[in-house]
């Protein structure tokens, strides 16, 4: 059988590299504060992506930057803790350099 490709479209999908394999059924791929997917944006933003990034704590918990910052900013200085484990929140700077991973797949049509 001979197939001639007449036309093809490339589709790209992106997601934040949160340090583990992607699992569509995993509820934990939601920001615990706003309950929106990491790849979505926080309730104050309209477009996901670089304008609404995610932030890692040294503790390993991940939130939308805007969500965790809003929480930290309204806490007294001695209680600026990670909402999950209540340990002092320290942003893991080194992880933010390598943000998005891309999966590209070509779809034939």
């Amino acid at each position: 059988m001979k197939v001639t490709i007449k036309n093809w479209n490339a589709i790209a999908q992106w997601r934040w590299d949160i340090g583990k394999e992607f699992d569509e059924t995993d509820d934990e791929d939601l920001c615990g504060i706003c309950r929106v997917a990491y790849e979505g944006c926080c309730p104050r933003c309209k477009m996901p992506g670089d304008d609404c990034p995610v932030l890692w704590g040294e503790c390993g918990h991940v939130y939308h930057m805007h969500c965790i910052m809003q929480w930290i900013e309204q806490q007294p200085p001695n209680k600026q803790n990670c909402p999950m484990d209540r340990k002092p929140w320290i942003t893991a700077e080194r992880k933010t350099a390598n943000t998005a991973t891309q999966q590209t797949q070509a779809v034939q049509s």
Partner: peptide, 11 residues
């Protein structure tokens, strides 16, 4: 703008 509360409560 819809408050963050209504979005979260909807979820």
């Amino acid at each position: 703008m819809a408050g963050i509360a209504s979005r979260r409560l909807q979820k």
